[in-house]
């Protein structure tokens, strides 16, 4: 049997490429991180700052975060044991190297999970993406904190962190 190898190969290539694009489009590009959907996690992790998407950090980071709530970036953010277990389970199963892997591949590139980084804003990729933001903009009264994603990313609460 004579197979038309070249057209078939080209066809497959085109198919693979569009599948890749389609997957990206569905995920909203590399700047989409699904927002927290669990009401307990939204309440407990989203009162002082935006409830950061679990896919922005590896599971090791969330584990460490939850074990250090007494000094949570200077605040005592302890919760009762049952709530803590609930939050830990959610964060760790949706983390950037577990359930949320498909959203985090770029953000966590170059991040060592064994180091369990606590600050999203110290991830190599995050720093690179925000290099062009001038110091005065960080100090602006409507920004003030690098944890204030929403100040510049108006879609942050819906999971979109595109360039604005």
């Amino acid at each position: 049997m004579d197979l038309p190898y070249r057209p078939v190969a080209l066809g497959l290539l085109a198919l693979a490429f569009s599948a890749l694009v389609w997957q990206r489009a569905q995920a909203g590009g590399s700047h989409y991180f699904p927002p927290v959907s669990d009401p307990v996690v939204v309440e407990e992790c989203g009162s002082c700052h935006l409830a950061f998407p679990p896919s922005m950090l590896p599971a090791s980071s969330w584990k460490r975060m939850m074990s250090e709530l007494k000094n949570h970036f200077g605040d005592d953010a302890r919760v009762d044991a049952a709530t803590a277990t609930h939050i830990s389970d959610y964060l760790m199963s949706n983390a950037g190297d577990t359930g949320g892997r498909r959203y985090s591949d770029k953000l966590l590139r170059g991040t060592s999970t064994s180091k369990a980084p606590l600050r999203i804003t110290e991830l190599e990729r995050w720093v690179g993406e925000h290099r062009e933001v001038p110091a005065w903009e960080w100090r602006h009264k409507d920004v003030r904190s690098k944890a204030n994603c929403l100040a510049c990313h108006s879609g942050a609460e819906r999971g979109y962190y595109d360039d604005d």
Partner: peptide
């Protein structure tokens, strides 16, 4: 508003 910009 919290220091991290969350509306209370």
């Amino acid at each position: 508003k919290t220091p991290a910009g969350k509306i209370i």
